[in-house]
Design a protein around this nucleic acid. Structure first.
Length: 365
DNA sequence: TAGGCCATCTGGTCCT
DNA sequence: AGGACCAGATGGCCTA
């Protein structure tokens, strides 16, 4: 649990009022003036940040604000600590006066910075959402948390690499174990459920949930899923639509049913992150992989969710003319395109592009 | 109600 | 100087 050294706003009021900020900030017109609904009432946030800034940072801007506080009254007053004790006089150059213009400049700068930061975080979240969509399990209503998304992505890349390097079947239990490595129990259950491992009632619900969300009966994969094969003519960027048409080539498949180990084998409890896994990624390595090439792989009616990773592998290893763009290397991958054209943050996507690069190379062997 | 997750604000730092 | 990125702080929402 995150520590909250300053407590809630109630406690903050006393502290801050002693510093003279309360009146200024509590009037609702403080902050950006464009505060989102969620942020209304976040006095504690503002106040806490101010406290933090004042007591620890003492940047020029904050000094200016402090200075402004004293404006109109007797300058050079001794600073009063939160508990009323006298703080030592500040050394260094005399603070500049916080004129109205400076105050407004500071405010405007802060407003702009806040907006940029919001936008940046939205971009980050968008990228994360796109990443969720290419995970082996995806649900609009049961979203993976950020950290779980990243862990699962790491595991996924790792597992796929393992498949490529060792020839391990993506339908094997080991593959699922790799996917679940370090994930929380709920996420492990979700993944296992997606792969039809020991479906518990909860998993069944999840499956139904996903199907419902997608509007594709019995389909487990997401439209637009880069792991599904992009149909020729489908728009690439912007990536991430959930059009069911992206799945047409997959319809009707009765996917392989996996063995039925307990999903608990994936992980027990909610293990803390167990450190870097250093997946055995290798581009130049040995890609010997036992598989039966089939030009119809992309048309095999794989059930996307029950093992749609198998579909991904089988289809991506053998690009065909029907696969639209994949023969062109990773650049044809919608994920890659998304990272190139649309997403401001593409680290995760690069990982997938990298993974696709491997599979593309497989196709050339 | 505690804990997990999230969005947001904020100041510092680095880079262009 | 200004923007991007980062990490700390905070309150809200949700769930077990």
């Amino acid at each position: 649990m995150m520590t909250k050294p300053y407590g809630k706003s109630g406690d903050m009021s006393e502290l801050v009022s002693s510093l003279g900020w309360l009146e200024e900030e509590e009037d609702g017109s403080s902050q950006d003036g464009e505060q989102s609904p969620e942020m209304r009432g976040h006095h504690g946030l503002t106040l806490g940040s101010r406290i933090h800034s004042c007591t620890e940072l003492g940047s020029e801007d904050m000094e200016e604000e402090e200075e402004e506080e004293g404006e109109g009254e007797g300058e050079e007053e001794e600073e009063i600590g939160p508990n009323g004790e006298n703080a030592p006089k500040r050394r260094g150059p005399k603070k500049k006066k916080m004129t109205k213009a400076r105050q407004e400049r500071f405010r405007a700068r802060r407003v702009k910075a806040n907006a940029r930061e919001r936008s940046r975080m939205h971009g980050l979240n968008d990228a994360l959402e796109s990443l969720r969509r290419v995970m082996p399990c995806y649900s609009k209503t049961q979203k993976l948390s950020k950290i779980e998304t990243l862990r699962l992505a790491r595991n996924y890349i790792w597992a796929l690499s393992e498949v490529l390097e060792s020839g391990q079947s993506p339908e094997s239990h080991g593959f699922v174990e790799m996917l679940c490595k370090g994930l929380s129990q709920p996420t492990s259950n979700l993944v296992a459920g997606c792969l039809q491992l020991g479906p518990s009632p909860m998993m069944i619900n999840k499956q139904e949930d996903k199907c419902g969300a997608l509007g594709v009966g019995g389909m487990g994969v997401q439209a637009g899923h880069p792991l599904s094969y992009p149909s020729p003519g489908l728009p690439s960027p912007p990536y991430g639509s959930l059009e069911a048409s992206h799945l047409l080539h997959m319809k009707g498949y009765k996917g392989p049913v996996y063995d039925n180990p307990s999903p608990n084998e994936c992980s027990s409890g909610t293990p803390p992150y167990d450190g870097p896994l250093t997946p055995p990624l290798s581009i130049s390595g040995n890609f010997a992989l036992k598989q039966e090439p089939s030009p119809h792989d992309s048309e095999r009616n794989y059930t996307p969710h029950p093992g749609h990773h198998a579909h991904y592998l089988s289809s991506h290893h053998y690009p065909t003319s029907t696969t639209g763009g994949l023969t062109g290397g990773p650049q044809g991958h919608p994920l890659f395109q998304a990272s190139r054209y649309e997403l401001p943050l593409d680290v995760a996507f690069d990982s997938f592009a990298h993974s696709h690069l491997i599979t593309s190379q497989m196709g050339t062997l």
